[in-house]
Design a protein around this nucleic acid. Structure first.
Lengths: 252, 252
DNA sequence: CAGTGGTCTAGACCACCAA
DNA sequence: TGGTGGTCTAGACCACTGC
């Protein structure tokens, strides 16, 4: 407020900038509670709605989290590094010198496991798996938890004919997971494709990930192919964008 | 309004849902103008602010775009498919059966090219490139345009000592671009690492990409290593999330 | 010039949380 | 029970667009 350099800047942006700077400078730390909306409105001499616009901006950035009836709290940012290509993950080129610091040692917990056999596949899944409209799929859903916070949703689709009667239709697929069981069945994944995009979450995704509707998520769809080039699994993942960094490494 | 099935749903969400459904059903097509705020407020019998909340939601989803003084328009969604691993891009596993349809034939135009020699590198860039604090970098910035819309910003950092006097310091680097010139200099990129995250844009990014402040962007940082494992280039890219799908393919 | 979206005011009621 | 954030009202002025 010292010299009013930019009269074109809206008030809610100024307030957001000020709070953002205060958070980044360490004045508010992860878990701290920000001043209430009324306090901020009084301090900045604006209407409550204007403060709310500023807080909505910070919320969509993933910097803060609102708890109804309690307050607005600074969100921790310690992203998980997810390696798209595990084989190359820890080689000579990957010696800690990365752009964003991120933890990749911790392994997340799993939650909300569901298995549905003989389900009807969405059309785009059917197309990629190369199934006829009447061919069914086995759907496996689960949620990943890190530090008591949900960070990823995942749904796998597998051709029902491929996996019927195998441990893949059980809640616990055993050591090595789905890919190990596909190998047992003679459909060992040999090639992967991952498609990545970013968008705002659906209502269901926002609820299950406990994030606001305007916080972006990363959508990662992994397709596994066996040695014959047959698509054997599609895994649709929804990642909290504030919790993940994806890493891919490859040769020229 | 026929049977009021969900009294828990806020009005602005209902309005957003209704408009979203109308767009997806084809009632409004790409480029069409939605009814004005006043008209929507009158139709739904709510205050103008409530309609604005709904429109803000659709805007952050990338579904619509506001033009001040003109109206709210439906945004086209025809994403560009960006292959992280060009060598594997068109092989047997990649025969059109992908989750999201996306164009990858068109090549974007380039805009706002800038070259700065002997620049001071940000600390995180210096760390990855393995430079001392006094070692300078060459910074190359540019903007990519597709269908008359900016879709990506890119900034490359190269060690100044490596590229001084080479065509890399020119606006036009010649056929094959930066990587071909690095090869000429004896630092042919042999290995790449890409780190991907999603976040809301900075003010500058939002301005240069002509997107609202709450529309997410994909941040891709590519590091190129030569055969000796030396980091020779860092390319920080900012992608409009409504315009891009990233694809990575790799073997098990 | 009329209409549009962007910003802002000054209140209100509610559900929820913590004390 | 008092304070919090979530939602909502009914206006206002402004800058900008398109006619």
């Amino acid at each position: 407020m010292s010299h009013e350099p930019s009269p074109a800047q809206p008030k809610y942006r100024r307030i957001a900038d000020e709070l953002r700077a205060a958070i980044k400078s360490g004045q508010y730390r992860a878990g701290d509670r920000l001043p209430g909306e009324n306090a901020l409105a009084a301090d900045h001499e604006v209407a409550p709605m204007t403060v709310r616009q500023a807080l909505a901006l910070l919320r969509s950035e993933g910097l803060v989290e609102s708890r109804k009836g309690s307050g607005v709290y600074v969100q921790p940012f310690s992203p998980i590094r997810r390696h798209g290509i595990p084989r190359l993950a820890r080689d000579q080129w990957n010696s800690g010198k990365t752009i964003w610091s991120a933890d990749d040692a911790r392994s997340p917990g799993i939650d909300q496991v569901s298995v549905t056999e003989n389900a009807t596949a969405p059309e785009h899944v059917r197309n990629v798996l190369g199934l006829r409209p009447d061919e069914k799929v086995c759907v496996r859903g689960r949620r990943y938890i890190m530090d008591a916070r949900p960070v990823m949703l995942a749904t796998s689709f597998l051709p029902q004919a491929l996996v019927a009667g195998s441990p893949i239709t059980q809640a616990d697929t055993g050591p090595g997971g789905i890919y190990a069981r596909l190998s047992d069945l003679g459909y060992a994944p040999a090639h992967f494709r991952e498609e990545v995009r970013s968008r705002t979450p659906s209502d269901e995704e926002a609820t299950r990930l406990s994030i606001p509707a305007d916080r972006p998520v990363l959508k990662v769809v992994r397709t596994a192919f066996d040695a014959d080039g047959r698509a054997v699994e599609i895994n649709e993942m929804t990642l909290d964008s504030a919790s993940y960094i994806l890493e891919y490494a490859f040769d020229a």
